[in-house]
Amino acid sequence: MESAHPARGAFDRMTALFWRRPKLLTALLIAPPLLWLGVVYVGSLAALLLQSFYSIDEFSGIVVPEFTLKTYAELLIPSNYDVIVRTVTMAAAVTLASVAIAFPVAFFAARHAKGRWKAVFYLGVMLPLWSSYLVKVYAWKLILAKEGIITWAAEGIGAGNVLGAVLAIPVIGGNSLSTSYIGTFLVFVYVWLPYMILPMQASLERVPTSMLEASADLGARGWRTFRSVILPLALPGVIAGSIFTFSLTLGDYIIPQIIGSSRFFIGQAVYSLQGTAGNIPLAAAFAVVPIVIMLVYLAVARKMGAFDAL
């Protein structure tokens, strides 16, 4: 137990031990969080996977703990398959709209905002990102209600029949904005937009100014530079952002429950199956769908270099 310092107490002896075996200290530090995540989180994911291979007895409603693929086969019956297609379509639409709305904000913040404006843009994106999810959804319930501000504004500027015409569109329309797919879509875009802006802004900040100058020197005008230089270099950020918007839309069940038509999304299916229906195996199988979709998505994103922008 001889070290550089004479041992004075238990703490010093331990220090000497850590000094001689640095890996021991690292292992001691990492053990508690690793145990927690390993047992609580990975253990739960394993339980989810396990449950999805069980099935439910149709007559007694009791879970049969035997391995079967029957539950996964149930995902393919039309009413369940429709839920999956509907959710993925919504996730794709939300992602595309987020890219379009996020771009000017991210571009301005990354390349034009200076000093105080930089802070304004940073907080301007950060505060909505972190402020209460439920409060944000609630705000939209007020906005989209039939007697709410949008109807009032539309009638005020004499566009009441335009709103009526939009709501009359089959499938995406409805009785009011708050009971239509348009409403669901708007709220999804609103709530996930900051998740798109931040990685986009990070990747735009990394586009070297010299490249833009080179592009200009070679005779490219604004639009050409944008398409051939900025966009390819910003793509990893866009993909990183799309991972969030896509994944979060796939798994959400509160927004379509509060604002939208009564037709289910994956999240609602999972929630109602595990709750009132008590069919945990099918709920688990439904929950595995977004995991699989996201794994494929992540594999593609990784190939395109999206993780450098995170």
Binding site: L37, S44, G251
Partner: peptide, 22 residues
Amino acid sequence: LVILPIALPGIITGMSLRSAFA
């Protein structure tokens, strides 16, 4: 592993824990 619980949608974390409790 650290990032996963917020990278995956909340419903997966929730449903996983629910399965584990069951």
